[in-house]
Design a protein around this nucleic acid. Structure first.
Length: 488
RNA sequence: CGGGACGUAGCGCAGUCCGGUAGCGCACCUGAAUGGGGUUCAGGGGGUCGCGGGUUCAAAUCCCGCCGUCCCGACCA
């Protein structure tokens, strides 16, 4: 590494972000423009995200399945809005086995069409419903401009797809999964989100309603971190997904779909990173504790290494967290000074570092250092697992609190003039809660003039007498409270 | 597809104006000392200078063509 300091975040957030992702070895550029290689450091975080989300999906009755990467091009065309939304960014396979294909195959940008075509075969009666499926997969969207983790041509995600007998059941499902995402993002990523309904112009191509989780990054821009759609009967009608109801009549099913991707790793970095690298919340950290033994002589070296591995054993064998054992790594590398190791692990975001040297050995202690605050404190060896577990819990909570406080400090809930709004959006940025008269033309005008978009109509809070009372732009009585922000 | 910049060792760059032995920092390898916040010294390996053509005794450098990448815009349910 040529430079010892990272680019100061304040001067150029994008440059800081790229450098942090590359130097923390989360990802790298691939030979294909816009595609990304996720390195073991980054994939370790993804694996923990997958496991946590998968458990939550199972707990809400969903099962995993797998559908094909290739979708007949005609499938995409069966739902009018859907094809309009996705055709421009589709990657299309025209040749296979050395021959031109009779019908081109689209590399899935999302799997609604292929999945609901299958659902149609599986459902006859209302007794076959609901179908609650999730798929872990990679998808391809040919974006013009890409960014590590946030917008790549190919990305990893999960997409849930369900079919229900009634509108209300589908609506309840879409909202339930939105809450699952919120819980995951707050409790695991320590990334607070605002949840709400998307405007017509921002909703999923083919959906009745789209809900999203919106997080605020450290440059005060919004990141859409997860979405949940009530698809109504749009796809059921396109793919003849029908069933016979209790009354004997044939009805179209109601679908939902919901997704979250490796984009969340980008969100994690932009929420918690600092000038020393990334900070990973303990629950998502592949390694929660790194032990750095410190020695001078060969004699001390074997002593300290033994002590370090003993500490590791005491932590990993501790059952105070049930099956979720503390994840510990001993950095036994030689020829590297302790300070150099500290910087490296801080760059990679390991939440807690333990330093063990001859002085500690004699005193029956070790030195702990928190990654989030960089605070150091001696800990007694006698009850180390308990104190480490408590420290990890504290860090997880503090990171969420810090992120929430930062977001609140940069949210505007009082009514502001449109001029002040423009100033904000061109300057430091913010989440601005404001009234909107519901007119798409106003939404387009604001986007044109400020690049800010309606992130959502928030469900978190209802502000009948606050910003919602009047439309920020026209001053006439407002129909909705919305959150405006510039977004990734 | 428009506007701008760049392409030289794994990474980051200098050298190009004004042609003359392929350089620097980091990383890597060997040895010794060092080791509680980015060690030091000594030695070493590694590059068809994006590709193709032209000018020249001689091209990373000048000329022509191509390719690629990045940034700004357009695009991003």
């Amino acid at each position: 590494m040529s430079d010892k300091k990272l680019t100061p975040r304040a001067s150029d957030f994008s440059a800081w972000y790229n450098e942090t992702v590359l130097r923390a070895e989360l990802a790298d550029y691939s030979p294909v423009r816009g595609c990304m290689v996720i390195r073991p450091n980054g994939y370790g975080i993804w694996e923990r995200m997958q496991r946590a989300l998968d458990d939550m999906f199972k707990a809400t009755g969903h099962r995993n399945a797998y559908f094909p990467l290739f979708i007949p091009e005609s499938f995409l065309h069966k739902e009018a809005q859907h094809v309009e939304g996705f055709a421009p960014e589709a990657a299309v396979v025209t040749h296979g086995g050395g021959k031109k294909l009779e019908e081109p195959l689209v590399v899935r940008p999302t799997s609604e069409t292929i999945i609901y075509s299958m659902f149609a075969k599986w459902v006859q009666s209302y007794r076959d419903l609901p179908i609650l499926i999730n798929q872990w997969a990679n998808v391809v969207r040919w974006e013009m401009r890409t960014r590590l983790f946030l917008r790549t041509l190919e990305f990893l995600w999960q997409e849930g797809h369900t079919a229900h007998a009634t509108h209300d059941e589908a609506e309840a499902e879409a909202r339930q999964m939105l809450q699952v995402y919120r819980t995951f993002m707050e409790e695991w990523i320590a990334m607070p989100v605002v949840t709400g309904l998307k405007s017509e112009s921002e909703k999923f191509a083919g959906a009745l309603r789209t809900y999203s989780c919106e997080a605020m990054m450290q440059d005060n821009k919004a990141l859409q971190a997860g979405t949940s759609h009530n698809l109504g009967q749009n796809f059921a009608k396109a793919f003849e997904l029908t069933f016979q109801g209790e009354s004997g009549a044939t009805e179209y099913a109601w679908n939902t779909s919901w997704g979250a991707s490796t984009r969340m790793i980008g969100g994690l970095v932009m929420t918690h990173g600092d000038d020393n690298g990334v900070r990973i919340p303990p629950k998502l950290a592949p390694t929660e504790v790194v032990i750095v033994p410190i020695w001078k002589s060969d004699e001390e070296r074997s002593q300290l290494l033994e002590a370090a591995y003993n500490v590791k054993a005491s932590l990993t064998s501790w059952g105070g967290r049930g099956d979720d054992r503390i994840r510990v790594h001993v950095d036994a590398r030689e020829g590297m000074k302790p300070g150099a190791k500290y910087y490296e692990w801080e760059l990679q975001g390991v939440p807690v570092r333990l330093e063990i040297g001859p002085r500690d050995l004699a005193a029956g202690t070790c030195m702990s250092a928190r990654r989030d605050t960089r605070a150091k404190a001696p800990l007694a060896m006698s009850n180390l697992p308990e104190s480490i577990a408590a420290l990890l819990t504290t860090i997880q909570g503090d990171m969420l609190r810090e992120a929430r406080e930062r977001r609140e400090a940069n949210s505007v809930r009082e009514p502001i003039s449109y001029d002040r709004f423009k100033e904000l959006m061109e300057g430091e940025g913010a989440f601005v809660y404001a009234g909107w008269n519901g007119d798409p033309a106003i939404e387009a005008k604001v986007k044109e003039e400020t690049k800010a978009t309606i992130r959502c109509l928030p469900m978190d809070e209802f502000l009948p007498d606050g910003p919602a009372a009047r439309c920020m732009v026209t001053g006439e009585p407002a129909k909705h409270t919305v959150i405006w922000a510039r977004a990734y």
